[in-house]
Design a protein around this nucleic acid. Structure first.
Length: 755
DNA sequence: GAGCACTGC
């Protein structure tokens, strides 16, 4: 079915590309003497090739030379072996077709299913056509994830027989593996966006390839809109949008009816089964299905998709228990069950690649493994050997409520595209089966086609700041593929205005420009930039880093009490931010031997992984501060204001995230949105504070505020006088309380003056 | 008295 649809779209676009090609012939490819230097010299391996007119045959000739055309080094035997396998990839058959289309247009949409070879091959074809060794301009290929950028770059460096980091490199946060000779650069989409902030025309590149565009990450969506704009002012820039879905028409339409090329994939067929009736309890149904497969289906590993850590651990236990029973009672083979989710330590994540267990006795049935995973196995991790997929049809998805400015996670039905992706996981090594725990009717009628792009489900404060820095003047008319709700945009603009990153006309302020230099949310960036005024930028730098990595506290289900006791050692009575700082200082005080540090973290129930990454982040943020001459200061530890200064500095960024205790007792109310919230049970904060600032608002079984620090109301009036201008405040407990604080402050000042 | 799907700069 997918093949047919692919052919249909490809035929349709053939015509439009022919029209464009004709147009190009008449006004584009006229001989231009000023570009003569762009032609390779007669003694070069590329002689006879004209940039952007190269043929597949010419490329093959150069590839077959005994020496590498780019480096002059003799090719290894391995190179020719790889070359052979490359020429068997589906995409290779259409190399000339690709080049023809690429020559005919500025923007090309390329659809290649899994196994087509698009990510490794297309950028190489472009290299031979663009001749970056002569123009000096780079070719970029973006990926949504770091590991992909790194591993694909390595693979392509091998294929081109060059050293990684020289002709072929990659660029991701914390690591730039490119050099002066680099022609082809794999990078994360976020990294290209960062670069664009300082080079609005992306002038270093002659061709930009956006890979995995169907994933619709925030960065990809912004890049698409940006590139669409840039394309109209830079006629020499070419763009390729690569996607895995059949939703290519949407990309084509968005890019002014850009031509399309579709290449089939190379996967095995997957048979789909639906349940005849809707399932009431999907976890129970999933467990039952896994056990049925184990008892009655031929060899092959199983992949089950569930939504989160708890659900997965629970299902693992139940399946293991029941499988043992099956082994005893009906002589089924052994079943090894492995959980898989993002917060699992890497060592345990690795176990999913273990071989399935052997038969228990000679002649007995062979074992299989069953992996129970979150969405991480849908895109980020690929496991070979999976033959059976069990798909209950749910995943946790981020949603944003602009009214109360809260992002939360909600278990929701997946999209058709997601269901297809999941099923595809069963056909990587041989034909497979996918058991969908919903009816065929539900699949057809109830599931949406595509998961909503991230841009429709996020707080956009950060995005809006980035866009301003990218030189986008008119946000309302900025041509995004899926424009977000106006209310979400308004909320973002409002927040940035309160943070003084945008002025009242919506223009970027000096502070806003500086804030956008940091890879942080605007509130964190503003807090960091303001911290020298509070004589504690070193400490705020540490806290900011700790807040931008996952929780450093480890709390295993079987050892919660001990973990809480260890955390108490670091606790500071004034709040969680200071507690984080204490733990970090203790960590840094342990020396640099990484084995010792790991041991120390283990004993103290701290995450070595996350503390180390906080260290990495800190170093990066520190460099940015130094570049912009922001002072790194500390109040002497003996000074009685050491901790007070830090608490006040926190408010410089988080003055909008403040709650006041209601007179009734435990419940706090957020100051502007009037939401009733509880302080999260993980807090170290004692009850005596009437006012707290919080790092995040979490919406789970109840409304919680998490990572809280006690503050004094008069600080709000000093540090954020505009936001806390009482004139504009609604009457109520909050306003009366702030008025009393203002009164107290005036009396104090009067007394000081009178003395 | 409880949670953190997944990425990215």
């Amino acid at each position: 079915m997918s093949d047919m649809a692919g052919k249909r779209t490809s035929a349709e676009s053939d015509e439009s590309s022919r029209k464009k090609a004709k147009k190009g012939d008449s006004d584009g490819d006229v001989y231009n003497p000023y570009l003569a230097h762009m032609d390779p010299s007669p003694d070069s391996p590329f002689s006879g090739m004209t940039r952007r007119q190269v043929t597949a045959e010419q490329i093959s000739k150069v590839e077959d030379l005994s020496a590498n055309a780019f480096t002059g080094v003799e090719h290894t035997q391995k190179y020719f072996q790889i070359l052979q396998t490359r020429r068997e990839l589906p995409v290779h058959k259409q190399r000339q077709e690709f080049l023809d289309k690429y020559h005919s247009t500025q923007i090309l949409v390329f659809v290649g299913e899994t196994g087509s070879g698009k990510t490794t091959q297309i950028p190489q074809y472009v290299v031979f056509d663009e001749l970056p060794n002569i123009t000096g301009k780079l070719i970029a290929c973006t990926q949504p994830r770091r590991v992909a950028a790194m591993s694909v770059a390595q693979r392509v460096a091998d294929e081109m027989d060059v050293k990684l980091g020289e002709e072929v490199g990659y660029s991701i946060r914390f690591e730039d593996k490119t050099g002066p000779k680099t022609m082809l650069k794999y990078m994360t989409d976020g990294m290209l966006l960062r670069e664009a902030m300082h080079d609005h025309d992306m002038s270093r590149y002659s061709c930009i390839i956006l890979d995995e565009a169907h994933e619709r990450t925030l960065a990809t969506d912004i890049l698409m809109a940006l590139l669409k704009q840039i394309a109209s002012r830079r006629s020499d820039l070419k763009i390729i949008i690569m996607s895995a879905t059949l939703d290519a028409q949407k990309f084509q339409r968005y890019f002014n009816d850009a031509p399309l090329l579709a290449v089939p994939g190379r996967t095995h067929p997957v048979e789909i089964f639906y349940t005849p009736e809707p399932e009431r309890d999907y976890v129970e149904a999933a467990i039952r299905t896994v056990l049925q497969i184990h008892a009655s289906e031929p060899d092959g590993d199983i992949l089950l998709f569930l939504t989160g850590e708890d659900e997965i651990e629970d299902a693992c236990r139940k399946i293991s228990l029941e499988a043992e029973e099956l082994t005893r009672e009906v002589d089924a083979g052994p079943l090894a069950v492995y959980p898989l989710y993002g917060s699992l330590p890497p060592q345990q994540q690795q176990r999913i690649f273990d071989k399935a267990p052997p038969a228990l006795r000679k002649g007995g049935r062979v074992g299989r493994k069953c992996i129970i995973s979150t969405n991480i196995a849908e895109t980020s991790l690929t496991i070979d050997g999976i033959v059976y997929v069990v798909d209950p049809g749910f995943s946790k998805q981020k949603i944003y409520n602009p009214r109360i400015r809260v992002e939360s996670l909600l278990v929701s039905p997946i999209s058709k595209a997601s269901a297809q992706q999941r099923a595809g996981r069963a056909g990587r090594t041989k034909p497979g089966k996918c058991f969908r725990l919903y009816t065929e009717k539900a699949f057809k009628k109830e599931l949406i086609e595509q998961t909503y792009p991230e841009i429709l489900r996020s707080n956009l404060a950060n995005t809006v700041l980035e866009l301003k820095k990218l030189g986008v003047e008119d946000l309302v008319h900025f041509d995004l593929m899926d424009p977000p709700a106006p209310e979400t945009m308004m909320r973002a603009l409002e927040e940035l205005n309160y943070l003084a990153c945008l002025d009242d006309d919506g223009e970027l302020t000096t502070l806003g420009g500086l804030a956008s230099e940091f890879p942080l949310d605007p509130a964190l960036a503003v807090m960091l930039i303001s911290s020298p005024e509070f004589y504690c930028s070193n400490e705020i730098l540490s806290i900011t880093s700790l807040l931008s990595v996952p929780q450093i506290w480890v709390r295993p289900a079987n050892n919660r009490k001990r973990a809480d006791e260890m955390k108490a050692h670091f606790s500071h009575p004034d709040g969680d931010h200071l507690t984080l700082l204490n733990a970090y200082h203790a960590f840094r005080g342990q020396g640099s031997d990484s084995n010792m540090l790991k041991q120390w973290c283990h004993e103290h129930f701290l995450s070595f992984r996350h503390l180390s990454s906080a260290d990495n982040v800190r170093a990066q943020l520190k460099r940015i501060m130094e570049t912009h001459s922001l002072d790194l200061l500390s109040t002497p530890f003996e000074d009685k204001n050491y901790y007070t200064n830090i608490r006040r500095a926190l408010l410089a960024g988080f003055f909008m995230q403040v709650g006041m205790k209601e007179s009734s007792g435990k419940v706090y109310r957020t100051v502007k949105d009037h939401q009733a919230v509880l302080i999260h049970p993980s807090t170290v904060l004692r009850a005596e504070f009437d006012w707290v600032l919080y790092n995040e608002f979490v919406l789970t079984s109840k409304q919680y505020i998490r990572t809280c620090t006690g503050i004094r109301p008069e600080w709000l009036l000093e540090i954020a006088p505009t936001y806390y201008d009482l004139e504009g405040f609604e009457d109520g407990e909050v306003k009366r309380s702030l008025q009393r604080a203002a009164e107290k402050k005036r009396r104090k000042e009067a007394m000081k003056a009178g003395r």
